[in-house]
Nucleic acid binder design. Sequence first.
DNA 1: GGCCCTTAGAGCACTCGGTGCCGGAAGAAT
DNA 2: ATTCTTCCGGCACCGAGTGCTCTAAGGGCC
Lengths: 236, 236
Amino acid sequence: MGTASSNTTKPAMRDSLIAAAFQLFLERGYEQTTVDDIVTLAGVGRRSFFRYFPSKEDVVFPDHEQCLADMTRFLAASADSDDPVVRVCDAARLVMRMYAENPTFSVQRYRLTREVAGLRTYELSVVWRYEKTLGDYLRTRWADRRDGTLRANVVAAAVVAAHNHALRHWLRSGGEGDALAEVDGALEFVRSTWTAGGQATEAPAEETEDVVVVITKRSTPMWRVVREVESSLGEG
Amino acid sequence: MGTASSNTTKPAMRDSLIAAAFQLFLERGYEQTTVDDIVTLAGVGRRSFFRYFPSKEDVVFPDHEQCLADMTRFLAASADSDDPVVRVCDAARLVMRMYAENPTFSVQRYRLTREVAGLRTYELSVVWRYEKTLGDYLRTRWADRRDGTLRANVVAAAVVAAHNHALRHWLRSGGEGDALAEVDGALEFVRSTWTAGGQATEAPAEETEDVVVVITKRSTPMWRVVREVESSLGEG
DNA sequence: GGCCCTTAGAGCACTCGGTGCCGGAAGAAT
DNA sequence: ATTCTTCCGGCACCGAGTGCTCTAAGGGCC
């Protein structure tokens, strides 16, 4: 199901290794399971395990490599008219969609990564690659901006943080709620903070010299002010 | 020098291990150096290495544990009147100050972490602990807020990203520029984005019903608008 | 059919990081 | 001097990961 649609023809042994690994991980723990245990249960040679997974940790995250490639292609296919912040938020949605496709698997893996320190650090490296992909995209989009790389790094980190916030909340709930809705809510916070500012200094900066007027009570939260200014700018 | 001031009485062997390790790492590479090489050069037993460093990677980051404790104490010592965002920015400055204390050492380590994948992921786990510390602090400060934990996670990630942006730029320059000034500039970007919004919905929300008027050109970047509103709110 | 070439897997031997355990040497307190 | 503590060295051991070889299973090609 995870590799349903397209290529990578016959991952028969690969899938059986994943199944055997998770069966053992769940019933006796990750660190208490050796690679030999996995391969004997799967009925294959030890060397074959490392043919399909470069390390023992990789078997826990079998689909991230594919998802990362998907995200890279998604960002490469964006148009210049797209708002960069909106685009990276949509890219983050791709990751959440992958998690939401197999809720039980995702929740089981989440329990593992919470307990085992080694898996947590491995997951960090995966998340870092996502963040770097988003940051690289934003950096090229904002190459002409003042502090473009700083902004790119901060926004990428914020998007990842918001995504992970929603993801972890959904995982803690056992995968019951609507994962996509949750991540949309979290990403809206990021989007409302930066999306208008990200567009304002683009090419059409000089063509419209409109003046935006915002009147607000002092008690109004800043995010409301920002959203107001943003919507004003949006329907120029 | 790194553990100059206070306790941890006599780290004689520890320091000699660090020196031997870096000497070998720099002249023949991290992965080409075994723990046996280090201990034979330092003239101690192999078992003693793992007494002082739980893993081979830990010898590369000998001072982060202390710095993390400093940051935790710094945040625990904050007053309720402090702006939380300003506080975490100051906490991030602590980390940069640690790097700036030994520029040559920091630059050498940076070159190592860029080349060796294992060290990069280890550094990620260290950074994650910093981010978690900042996030925990913000979460308690914003416990009564709507979306307080989301905001805490995003702001913590943004602060870490801004800090790392300045840090990496300084390290790439060979440790020549003013590290503290660079991180201040980067953190100012984060501060100007969130510092006013963080305070606006606190207790004195109802006492002053002032109206804030913002007039801006459409081309004005959002961060300027926010900064303007922030300064208006600041001098009420 | 027989033959050859490629591919995938099994098995083996080895390196190296990390741990548990024990024994010995210094040092302080009595 | 002796006992107890602490620190260190020296094994022996486990498990992850790698390089190598050998073999079996296809897949054309004649």
